[in-house]
Write a protein that binds this DNA or RNA. Structure first.
Lengths: 134, 134
DNA sequence: CTGGATCCTAAACGATACTG
DNA sequence: CAGTATCGTTTAGGATCCAG
């Protein structure tokens, strides 16, 4: 567990709120976390279901991400004591609200894909003057 | 220059759009990028101004982040040919819209700080019963 | 089926020094 | 002041093995 643990915790300070906000920025700024939240928008999913739906995520990363999100109360973990143990994850109410925020990002991306593309082309062309095209 | 460059680019595919979206997730999932966009919400800022306002960011990271955001057309870079060269960065129109999305995340964080705190306390207590200090 | 622990490599990052 | 390049360190993350 190399996760950042709160450590010393001053009382309700502005500085403290800022620090926590910074920590949350760290958590939000995690593409896997964003994708997990996004996928769980469809409803509760098992570990393996998440693993198969999120292309490219490793076993370890998924576990790690889920642990972090659970710790922050974004999702809940429900263990079914079946013979092959199965675990279901679901968004909490705050998690669902976070999903809305993530959706805003997604919509922004979709809306501006053409702009981004052309911007990248222009930028690359301007910064690689003598590069021939492959 | 170890930044991720587009690389091979298939034609206008659904898969391609998905890939670009994934790339954007990568960019969005960058706390420094988020903070830069957030700061530029106040208006155009110089390099040194950004550097002093974003606590903890290194010279290199700020440059790198600004380059990436400029490449994606999120912000513009304006160089003033003064004797000590000064450069101003400002959000583009898509950048301002991205700021709105980022603000949604921020508001979510503020609104759920108490929930997050208590969730973390509960989680840590449940997962570190008799742990003094690592 | 989950998930924890371990090893080990590739990548990110900070510090530093150097241009315009 | 703003930016690039190089270097050395740290760390994140993938592969693998083991346990409940």
């Amino acid at each position: 567990m190399s996760d950042q643990v709160g450590g010393p915790r001053p009382s309700g300070d502005v500085t403290y709120a800022q620090a926590v906000a910074r920590q949350m920025f760290d958590r939000i700024a995690d593409k896997w976390a964003l994708l997990v939240v996004y996928r769980l928008g469809e409803g509760r999913l098992r570990f393996s279901e998440l693993h198969s739906r999120i292309e490219g995520i490793s076993h370890k990363m998924l576990t790690q991400t889920l642990r972090g999100l659970e710790r922050d109360g974004v999702l809940t973990r429900h263990v079914f004591p079946t013979s092959p143990p199965s675990v279901e994850y679901a968004l909490t109410e705050p998690g669902r609200e976070l999903l809305e925020a993530v959706s805003v990002i997604c919509r922004w991306t979709e809306r501006h894909l053409p702009h981004i593309e052309s911007a990248r082309l222009g930028f690359d062309a301007a910064h690689q003057p003598g590069l021939t095209s492959p």
